[in-house]
Protein backbone atom coordinates (compact mmCIF):
# COMPACT_ATOMS: atom_id res chain seq x y z
CA UNK A 1 0.00 0.00 0.00
CA UNK A 2 1.59 3.29 -1.04
CA UNK A 3 0.73 6.72 0.33
CA UNK A 4 -1.81 7.51 -2.41
CA UNK A 5 -3.66 4.24 -1.74
CA UNK A 6 -3.54 4.96 1.97
CA UNK A 7 -5.16 8.35 1.28
CA UNK A 8 -8.00 6.68 -0.62
CA UNK A 9 -8.73 4.27 2.23
CA UNK A 10 -8.43 7.17 4.66
CA UNK A 11 -11.10 9.12 2.77
CA UNK A 12 -13.50 6.16 3.05
CA UNK A 13 -12.65 5.88 6.74
CA UNK A 14 -13.32 9.59 7.20
CA UNK A 15 -16.81 9.33 5.70
CA UNK A 16 -17.71 6.29 7.82
CA UNK A 17 -16.47 7.94 10.98
CA UNK A 18 -18.60 10.99 10.28
CA UNK A 19 -21.70 8.80 10.22
CA UNK A 20 -20.94 6.39 13.03
CA UNK A 21 -18.93 8.17 15.69
CA UNK A 22 -20.89 9.32 18.71
CA UNK A 23 -19.69 11.45 21.57
CA UNK A 24 -21.10 10.71 24.97
CA UNK A 25 -22.02 14.25 26.04
CA UNK A 26 -23.79 13.12 29.16
CA UNK A 27 -20.77 11.25 30.42
CA UNK A 28 -18.50 14.16 29.66
CA UNK A 29 -20.74 16.56 31.57
CA UNK A 30 -21.07 14.26 34.55
CA UNK A 31 -17.37 13.57 34.88
CA UNK A 32 -15.62 16.04 37.08
CA UNK A 33 -12.72 16.49 34.76
CA UNK A 34 -11.15 19.19 36.88
CA UNK A 35 -10.72 16.78 39.74
CA UNK A 36 -8.85 14.21 37.74
CA UNK A 37 -5.27 14.24 38.84
CA UNK A 38 -2.66 13.86 36.18
CA UNK A 39 0.73 12.29 36.69
CA UNK A 40 2.34 15.69 36.15
CA UNK A 41 0.24 17.30 38.86
CA UNK A 42 1.03 14.52 41.29
CA UNK A 43 4.71 14.91 40.46
CA UNK A 44 4.43 18.66 41.06
CA UNK A 45 2.92 18.10 44.51
CA UNK A 46 5.57 15.51 45.36
CA UNK A 47 8.38 17.82 44.21
CA UNK A 48 6.96 20.63 46.35
CA UNK A 49 7.03 18.32 49.36
CA UNK A 50 10.56 17.17 48.51
CA UNK A 51 11.76 20.76 48.15
CA UNK A 52 10.27 21.77 51.50
CA UNK A 53 11.82 18.72 53.22
CA UNK A 54 15.23 19.33 51.65
CA UNK A 55 15.17 22.98 52.70
CA UNK A 56 14.21 22.17 56.29
CA UNK A 57 16.86 19.44 56.61
CA UNK A 58 19.53 21.63 55.02
CA UNK A 59 18.70 24.58 57.26
CA UNK A 60 18.82 22.36 60.33
CA UNK A 61 22.13 20.78 59.25
CA UNK A 62 23.70 24.21 58.64
CA UNK A 63 22.61 25.40 62.08
CA UNK A 64 23.87 22.18 63.66
CA UNK A 65 27.24 22.40 61.87
CA UNK A 66 27.61 26.02 63.04
CA UNK A 67 26.89 24.98 66.64
CA UNK A 68 29.46 22.20 66.46
CA UNK A 69 32.14 24.32 64.78
CA UNK A 70 34.52 23.83 67.72
CA UNK A 71 34.31 20.01 67.56
CA UNK A 72 35.97 18.88 64.38
CA UNK A 73 34.92 15.22 64.82
CA UNK A 74 31.25 16.27 64.72
CA UNK A 75 31.69 19.17 62.34
CA UNK A 76 33.22 17.02 59.56
CA UNK A 77 30.33 14.50 59.34
CA UNK A 78 27.86 17.40 59.58
CA UNK A 79 29.68 19.20 56.75
CA UNK A 80 29.44 16.00 54.65
CA UNK A 81 25.69 15.94 55.20
CA UNK A 82 25.36 19.66 54.36
CA UNK A 83 27.20 19.02 51.12
CA UNK A 84 25.05 15.98 50.30
CA UNK A 85 21.77 17.76 51.06
CA UNK A 86 22.93 20.71 48.98
CA UNK A 87 23.30 18.27 46.08
CA UNK A 88 19.88 16.72 46.78
CA UNK A 89 18.33 20.17 46.80
CA UNK A 90 19.96 20.88 43.45
CA UNK A 91 18.49 17.63 42.04
CA UNK A 92 15.01 18.65 43.23
CA UNK A 93 15.38 22.15 41.77
CA UNK A 94 16.49 20.60 38.48
CA UNK A 95 13.32 18.54 38.35
CA UNK A 96 11.17 21.56 39.18
CA UNK A 97 12.87 23.56 36.44
CA UNK A 98 12.36 20.70 33.96
CA UNK A 99 8.70 20.36 34.90
CA UNK A 100 7.99 24.07 34.55
CA UNK A 101 6.55 25.09 31.26
CA UNK A 102 5.37 21.63 30.18
CA UNK A 103 2.15 22.46 28.41
CA UNK A 104 0.64 19.68 26.34
CA UNK A 105 -0.69 22.18 23.82
CA UNK A 106 2.89 22.96 22.76
CA UNK A 107 4.54 21.53 19.63
CA UNK A 108 4.80 17.75 19.88
CA UNK A 109 8.56 17.42 19.56
CA UNK A 110 9.32 20.23 22.01
CA UNK A 111 6.95 18.80 24.62
CA UNK A 112 8.24 15.26 24.19
CA UNK A 113 11.80 16.53 24.62
CA UNK A 114 10.78 18.49 27.74
CA UNK A 115 9.10 15.37 29.16
CA UNK A 116 12.21 13.34 28.47
CA UNK A 117 14.45 15.93 30.16
CA UNK A 118 12.13 15.81 33.17
CA UNK A 119 12.45 12.02 33.16
CA UNK A 120 16.26 12.34 33.07
CA UNK A 121 16.16 14.74 36.05
CA UNK A 122 13.85 12.38 37.97
CA UNK A 123 16.04 9.36 37.26
CA UNK A 124 19.18 11.24 38.37
CA UNK A 125 17.40 12.20 41.59
CA UNK A 126 16.37 8.62 42.42
CA UNK A 127 19.76 7.24 41.44
CA UNK A 128 21.95 9.58 43.48
CA UNK A 129 19.77 9.57 46.57
CA UNK A 130 19.77 5.76 46.70
CA UNK A 131 23.49 5.42 45.98
CA UNK A 132 24.42 8.15 48.48
CA UNK A 133 22.32 6.68 51.31
CA UNK A 134 24.80 3.96 52.43
CA UNK A 135 27.76 6.34 52.11
CA UNK A 136 25.98 8.89 54.30
CA UNK A 137 25.10 6.27 56.88
CA UNK A 138 28.19 6.97 59.01
CA UNK A 139 27.86 10.80 59.13
CA UNK A 140 24.13 10.35 59.80
CA UNK A 141 24.92 8.11 62.74
CA UNK A 142 27.34 10.62 64.26
CA UNK A 143 25.17 13.70 63.64
CA UNK A 144 21.93 11.94 64.67
CA UNK A 145 23.50 10.61 67.87
CA UNK A 146 25.00 13.97 68.70
CA UNK A 147 21.68 15.75 68.10
CA UNK A 148 20.07 13.47 70.70
CA UNK A 149 22.86 14.10 73.20
CA UNK A 150 24.94 10.97 72.61
CA UNK A 151 28.65 10.94 71.99
CA UNK A 152 28.69 8.14 69.41
CA UNK A 153 32.52 8.04 69.34
CA UNK A 154 32.74 7.38 73.08
CA UNK A 155 29.68 5.15 73.40
CA UNK A 156 30.18 2.82 70.44
CA UNK A 157 33.91 2.49 70.26
CA UNK A 158 36.31 3.01 67.37
CA UNK A 159 36.10 -0.56 66.05
CA UNK A 160 32.33 -0.53 65.66
CA UNK A 161 32.37 2.92 64.03
CA UNK A 162 35.06 1.93 61.54
CA UNK A 163 33.03 -1.17 60.68
CA UNK A 164 29.94 1.00 60.08
CA UNK A 165 31.88 3.40 57.83
CA UNK A 166 33.37 0.51 55.82
CA UNK A 167 29.98 -1.19 55.58
CA UNK A 168 28.45 2.00 54.14
CA UNK A 169 31.28 2.43 51.65
CA UNK A 170 31.04 -1.19 50.51
CA UNK A 171 27.25 -1.17 50.27
CA UNK A 172 27.08 1.60 47.64
CA UNK A 173 28.93 -0.32 44.87
CA UNK A 174 27.19 -3.54 45.95
CA UNK A 175 23.84 -1.77 45.52
CA UNK A 176 24.89 -0.57 42.08
CA UNK A 177 25.88 -4.04 40.87
CA UNK A 178 22.80 -5.65 42.41
CA UNK A 179 20.64 -3.09 40.55
CA UNK A 180 22.33 -3.97 37.26
CA UNK A 181 21.51 -7.64 37.82
CA UNK A 182 17.96 -6.92 38.95
CA UNK A 183 17.31 -4.59 36.01
CA UNK A 184 18.01 -7.45 33.59
CA UNK A 185 15.59 -9.88 35.22
CA UNK A 186 11.94 -10.38 34.38
CA UNK A 187 9.98 -7.92 36.50
CA UNK A 188 7.91 -9.38 39.29
CA UNK A 189 7.38 -5.91 40.63
CA UNK A 190 7.32 -3.09 38.06
CA UNK A 191 8.14 -0.52 40.76
CA UNK A 192 11.20 -2.45 41.94
CA UNK A 193 12.24 -3.01 38.34
CA UNK A 194 11.95 0.71 37.61
CA UNK A 195 14.04 1.66 40.65
CA UNK A 196 16.65 -0.96 39.73
CA UNK A 197 16.81 0.40 36.18
CA UNK A 198 17.12 3.96 37.52
CA UNK A 199 19.97 3.07 39.91
CA UNK A 200 21.78 0.96 37.33
CA UNK A 201 21.58 3.81 34.81
CA UNK A 202 19.60 1.81 32.25
CA UNK A 203 16.63 4.21 32.30
CA UNK A 204 19.03 7.10 31.88
CA UNK A 205 20.51 5.52 28.75
CA UNK A 206 17.02 4.96 27.32
CA UNK A 207 15.93 8.53 28.06
CA UNK A 208 19.10 9.98 26.54
CA UNK A 209 18.65 7.84 23.42
CA UNK A 210 15.11 9.18 23.19
CA UNK A 211 16.31 12.81 23.40
CA UNK A 212 18.80 12.02 20.66
CA UNK A 213 16.07 10.49 18.46
CA UNK A 214 13.93 13.62 18.94
CA UNK A 215 16.89 15.81 17.97
CA UNK A 216 17.47 13.61 14.91
CA UNK A 217 13.84 14.04 13.88
CA UNK A 218 14.14 17.80 14.22
CA UNK A 219 17.24 17.98 12.07
CA UNK A 220 16.56 19.07 8.55
CA UNK A 221 17.99 16.70 6.05
CA UNK A 222 17.92 16.97 2.33
CA UNK A 223 15.81 14.34 0.63
Amino acid sequence: MNLEEMQEVWAVHERRLERSLRLNHQLLRETQLDQTRSALRRLGAWLGFELATDLVVLAWLCAFAFEQRAQLRILLPAACLVLAWGCFLRLTLRQLAARRGIDFSGPTLAIQRALELLRIARIANTRWRILAAPILWFPLLVVGGSAFGHDVYAECGAGWLIAQALFGLALAPALFFASRKLAQRTPNSPVLQRIARDVAGRSLETARARVESIAAFEREESA
Binding site: V9, W10, V12, H13, R16, L21, L23, L27
Partner: peptide, 18 residues
Protein backbone atom coordinates in the same frame (compact mmCIF):
# COMPACT_ATOMS: atom_id res chain seq x y z
CA UNK B 1 -16.40 5.56 26.97
CA UNK B 2 -16.40 9.18 25.85
CA UNK B 3 -16.33 8.18 22.23
CA UNK B 4 -18.42 5.21 21.24
CA UNK B 5 -16.39 3.24 18.72
CA UNK B 6 -18.08 2.79 15.35
CA UNK B 7 -19.45 -0.62 14.51
CA UNK B 8 -17.35 -2.57 12.02
CA UNK B 9 -18.75 -2.25 8.53
CA UNK B 10 -18.24 -4.33 5.42
CA UNK B 11 -14.95 -3.41 3.83
CA UNK B 12 -13.37 -2.29 7.08
CA UNK B 13 -10.49 -4.74 6.53
CA UNK B 14 -8.82 -2.11 4.35
CA UNK B 15 -9.13 0.40 7.19
CA UNK B 16 -7.73 -2.13 9.67
CA UNK B 17 -4.85 -2.75 7.30
CA UNK B 18 -4.31 0.99 6.98
Amino acid sequence: QYVAAPEPEPGSEAIDEL
